[in-house]
Amino acid sequence: MELTDQEITTSREETKKILPQYPGRRGDLIPILQKVQEKLGYVPAPAMEEVAAYLGITPMDVYSVVTFYNQFRLSPPGKRQINVCMGTACHMRGGNIILDSWKRRLKIDVGQVTPDREFSLERVACVGCCTMAPVTVIDGEVHPKVTPTRVDGLLFSFGMKIEKEGGKH
């Protein structure tokens, strides 16, 4: 995933606005990163560099922390957030097959976003509707008993919607 020039500039500027709110102790690292993610929706490399310079640590130290915790995203969220449930029931009903289908069709891995920024893929723990396993939640809407064919169908309908939206502009 390549960041656009616009994204790089924005992430640097927004991070610079956040930094002065903190005294610059090493212990401020996680609160700063959380604030950055709150603002940008993810923690891009330029932001990590700014944070590292501010705290006087290496960018690698920041990267270590960002990759350690699941709460931090490295890529921007897509317009549509696809959450594949990997809870116990969904796992037993082939949740990993569904996750693989999404990965294959979108050509991205978990935690990534498609190059057109339309879809981002995440795995989640139980979403609380195990009778409908395996489920995929797209922008808060639960899709029950998903099959690989259903993945294709959902993507097809999204493709139509995107085309329509594109027509309006």
Partner: peptide
């Protein structure tokens, strides 16, 4: 690397995904 090479290397990820790597 931290002592001598400028801290280019570090740990990333967690669990099975943990590895020694560089920034990004």
């Amino acid at each position: 690397c931290r002592r001598q090479g400028g801290g280019v290397l570090g740990f990333a990820g967690r669990g099975f995904e943990r590895r020694v790597t560089t920034f990004g």
